[in-house]
Simulated assay, not measured.
Amino acid sequence: MALPATLNPLPHASKSDADDLLRQADNLSAAELDTLPFGLIQLDRTGRILKFNQTEAKLARINRDRQINRNFFDEVAPCTKVREFYGRFLHGLNQRSLYETFGFVFKFDHGWRNVAITMFYSEKTDSVWVLISQTSVTPPPGR
């Protein structure tokens, strides 16, 4: 399945490049994941983090190594445990088919990140890849 024409998580790449990258994510080494210009996180069926690239760690201002094996939805990014994000994750796992891009706002103490999220189910590893493309940073209200 290709990305819808209006949604491209990688604005400087073609949709087919984005498609190809997500389909090959399972084969990328940790070093290759770290060279990507966007965040990429791999989650198992329970939401446990299997891989977390350095780009996302820097953007989120967290230690990447401390995130491995933690539950993304409960421990790392509880703001994502909402229907718009977690619901899509669960539905995609249930259907064993997921390739969807949507806007989301991560709420950190240091500011809000407006991002484009692409979730892709990998049949090969029975996992979900979460691609996080930075769109902007907004200071929290009242600061």
Rank of each mutant, 00 (worst) to 15 (best):
Y121Q: 03
T138R: 14
R88W: 02
T138V: 14
S14N: 03
D74T: 10
A60T: 02
R96T: 13
Q42N: 12
T55C: 12
F72M: 14
R88E: 12
F104H: 15
P9G: 05
L90E: 08
D20S: 12
S16W: 05
E100S: 12
A25D: 01
A13F: 13
F104I: 04
Y99I: 03
L131K: 01
A25T: 05
L33E: 03
I62G: 02
T46F: 06
N8K: 05
E56P: 00
N27C: 06
Y121T: 02
I62T: 13
F73E: 00
L3F: 15
A25M: 08
V130T: 06
S16Q: 12
L43R: 01
E123P: 04
L59R: 14
K58N: 13
R83V: 06
D34P: 03
D19I: 02
R64K: 14
A30W: 04
Q95S: 12
D74C: 02
P37M: 06
N94T: 10
A77T: 09
E32C: 02
G142Y: 07
L36M: 12
P9W: 02
C79D: 14
R64H: 08
A31G: 03
P9A: 07
T35N: 09
Q24Y: 10
Y121H: 12
R70P: 00
N69L: 10
L22P: 00
S16M: 09
C79T: 11
F102I: 06
R83F: 06
D109E: 15
G111P: 08
